[in-house]
Structure formats: structure tokens, C-alpha cells
């Protein structure tokens, strides 16, 4: 009955067909931006040195992967927060330079613009890590899954911390605090490598998996909060 009622309701609200629709659409049709086009257009506004620094860090990671040190997975993991810092520096750019007002005047909502820029940088980083992880795992004990978890967790931890801090602290101070947070995560990685090497043993893998899920959730939540923050700004 439920389905039949819905179907019949759709028929019951029959309106005579419009007569001038084709002429109106011919005159007033305008092309809307698709999500992919928005992403590509916004990628063009990301500063060149964001791409250059990401590429440079990737080269360093590749050199590490080419080495024979048994610790190269964990050293690489300790470097990924720097990759996240590059993305965070791009994230807070308009806020840092007081350009939010100008961005609010643009055709696209600031949230969508920020999200598109971050998605372009984030997707590049994920692609680099996706290429790098099998290379790293190929010559070591850790498989692709383990290496991926070790690399992604500090990246996501720094990204979520950075977004939280840049939402709370405005201006150059925000970037400084984010840098400090990224360095702290790096140092923690190096410290664990020096004194708590057992953390990287397979028996601790469930802990890493939990940490990955938590940081993934935190990053998603922070992204939503940052986009919502731009909406509030628009209405205030």
C-alpha cells in the first residue's frame, strides 16, 4: 500500500506541461561548475611552493626508501607531519592574510573554495603516500598495510591538530603554533624510534589501527568544523 500510495500521489499531483520551458532554457541556460572543475580551478590558486615543498619532501622520502636502514619506515613516518604542515599552512592562508572578507565576495562559498583547495593538496599527499608506501614496504619487514598505517597516522594527527589550532588561534601565531605541533609530532616519532622501538612491533598494530581510526575521525570532524566556521563568518 505504501509504495502504491506514493506512486499514486505522484500521479495525483499532475500539472499540465509547461509551454515555454524550452525557449526559457535556451535563453537562460548557464554552465554550472562541476566538483571536479572546482577542484582543478582552485588547485591553480595553491601557492607554487606548496607543490614544490611537497615534491621536495617526497624526494627525501624516496631517498630514505632507497636506503637499507631497517628504521627507514619509522623515520619516514616521523617526517610525514611536515607534509601535513604544508597542507595546514595553505589552509589558513586567507585567514592569516586577512583575505576572508574578499573571499566571501566571490561567487563560490568560502567553505567550498577552502575544501576544494585542501582536497587538491590532500589528494596529492595521499597519492604521494600511496606511491611511496609499497616502495617502502617492498624491502622491509613491515607489509604495505603496516607501513601505510605508520605513515598515515602521524600525518592525520598533525592535520587534525593543525586544523583545531588554526581555528582557535588567528594570524601568524596560528601558523607558529601549528608548526610547533607538527614538530612535536615529529619529535615524538623520533623519540619513539630511539627509546620505545617496541611500539613499532606487530603486537602493537591494533593500537596503531585504533589511533588511525581516531585520527581519521578527528580530521573529518575538524574539516567539517572549519567549513562550518566559514558559514558562520558569512552570516555574522
Amino acid at each position: 500500500m505504501e509504495k502504491k500510495l506514493y506512486e499514486t500521489l505522484k500521479g495525483a499531483f499532475h500539472a499540465p506541461p509547461p509551454e515555454r520551458k524550452a525557449a526559457f532554457l535556451r535563453t537562460h541556460r548557464r554552465r554550472e561548475l562541476s566538483s571536479a572543475e572546482l577542484l582543478l580551478s582552485q588547485a591553480g590558486y595553491v601557492r607554487w611552493w606548496t607543490w614544490a615543498l611537497s615534491a621536495a619532501l617526497f624526494v627525501i622520502l624516496l631517498l630514505l626508501a632507497a636506503g637499507r636502514e631497517p628504521e627507514r619506515v619509522w623515520i619516514s613516518a616521523a617526517l610525514t607531519p611536515l607534509l601535513a604542515l604544508i597542507a595546514i599552512a595553505e589552509w589558513g592562508r586567507s585567514r592569516r592574510y586577512g583575505m576572508e572578507e574578499l573571499e566571501l565576495c566571490c561567487r563560490m562559498p568560502t567553505g567550498a573554495v577552502l575544501l576544494a583547495r585542501m582536497a587538491s593538496v590532500g589528494l596529492l599527499h595521499l597519492a604521494l603516500l600511496a606511491v611511496f608506501t609499497p616502495m617502502l614496504a617492498a624491502k622491509g619487514e613491515a607489509g604495505i598495510l603496516r607501513a601505510g598505517i605508520y605513515l598515515l597516522t602521524p600525518y592525520l594527527l598533525t592535520a587534525s591538530l593543525g586544523m583545531e589550532l588554526s581555528r582557535r588561534i588567528r594570524g601568524q601565531e596560528g601558523l607558529l603554533v601549528c608548526t610547533a605541533a607538527a614538530v612535536l609530532v615529529c619529535v615524538l616519532g623520533v623519540w619513539a624510534l630511539g627509546t620505545r622501538r617496541s611500539l613499532y612491533q606487530p603486537e602493537y598494530l591494533p593500537l596503531w589501527q585504533i589511533a588511525l581510526v581516531l585520527t581519521l575521525g578527528a580530521s573529518a570532524w575538524e574539516t567539517v568544523q572549519c567549513v562550518k566556521g566559514t558559514e558562520e563568518l558569512q552570516w555574522s
Binding site: 500539472a15 509547461p18 509551454e19 520551458k21 526559457f24 537562460h28 541556460r29 562541476s34
Partner: peptide
């Protein structure tokens, strides 16, 4: 992001028709 004007035209028209009951 993109809005399908062609699809929404019919829906908005249907909504207006049921409020006004006059095609034109």
C-alpha cells in the same frame, strides 16, 4: 554543486501550478 535547471524547472512549475491552478 551544480543545479539541474531543466529538472528543477518542472518541479518549481508544478509547485507554482498547484498554488495558482493556472498554467500561464
Amino acid at each position: 554543486m551544480a543545479l539541474d535547471i531543466e529538472e528543477q524547472y518542472d518541479r518549481i512549475y508544478r509547485y507554482c501550478w498547484f498554488r495558482l491552478r493556472d498554467r500561464h
